[in-house]
Amino acid sequence: MRKELFTAKNVIVQGITGSHGAFHTATMRASGTHIVAGTSPNKAGQVIDGVPVYATIHAIQQDHQVDISVIFVPAPFAKDAMIEAIEAKVPLIICITEGVPVHDMLEVKKQAEQSNVTIIGPNCPGVLVPGINKLGIIPASMGTPGRVGIVSRSGTLTYEAAAGLTARGIGQRYIIGIGGDRIQGTNFIDCLRLFEEDDEVSSIVLIGEIGGSSEQHAADYIKSHVSKPVYAYIAGHSAPIGIQLGHAGAILGGEGETAASKTEALQQAGVTTSISIVTLIESVK
C-alpha cells in the first residue's frame, strides 16, 4: 500500500442509492471527499445529492478516472461489487458492508492479489485521513490532522482511540479500520508498512483482539521492520475462552490467540502495551 492511494482525489460509491450509501455519500462530501460518481444497477441516470449515478464502474470510467471505491452494497451482492472494482483496476477498494460470506471473500482475495489492487474490509468502518479524505463511515469529528497512524480490527475501538487522541490534542495521519472478519483484504502488516514508510507518520497505534494470529505476525513484523514507536492494546483480557467445537483450533495453535499471549509477543517486539483502551490513549506520546 502506497500513501498516494489514500490521498488520491476521485472517489466513487458502489451502492450509492441504498440508505447507508446515500447517507454516507453525504457525510463524506461534507468532509471534503471528492465523490465523482456512484453505481446502482437499476438507477443509472439519476442524480443523488448532486452525484451522478451510473450502472457500472466501467461506464463511470468513460467519464472519470476512478482512484478509490467505497462499497455499501448489501452483503449478498458485495462479492460481485468487489470483483467488478477489481476488474476495473480501481487501485483502492474499501468495503464497508457487514456480513459478507467468508467463501466469497476467499474468492475476492485471490482475485485482488492477482490484480495488484488494495482491498480494505469488508465489515469495516473504512479510512479517515483527517483533513484530507474520509473514505467510509468514521465520523470526521473523531479525528484531527496530525502524525499518528491508527489501525484497528474493531470498528467501535477505532472510533474510541481516534476520539481519545483527538481529545488529548494528538492528531492523526491515518485512522484505518481493517475489519474483524476472518478473511480481510488488508491486514495489520500492510498498514504497519504504510505507516513506517510515510514520513508524515511519527507514531503508531495498533488495536487487536483475541482470536486469530494476526497480532503475532504484526509483532514479528514490528521487530524486524518498524522503527517508529508503536502503542498497542489487545481487547479481550477478561474474555472467557470460547467453547471449542472441534480440535482444529488446538492443533493449529489456538493458545497463542489469547490477549495475554498477543500482548507478550508485542512487548517482546518493543511495543508499549496497555491492558485497557483508557490507558492506551494515555500512553501515546
Partner: peptide, 30 residues
C-alpha cells in the same frame, strides 16, 4: 453493557484494569 464486540471487551478490560470485578460481557449489537 456496551455495543460492538471490541468495545464490549474493552469495557470489561477497563473494569478489570481498575481493579474491580467485571460480572459479565454484553454486546448489545448494532
Amino acid at each position: 453493557i456496551a455495543n460492538g464486540a471490541g468495545l464490549a471487551m474493552a469495557t470489561v478490560d477497563a473494569v478489570a484494569a481498575r481493579k474491580m470485578k467485571p460480572a459479565n460481557f454484553l454486546d448489545i449489537g448494532g
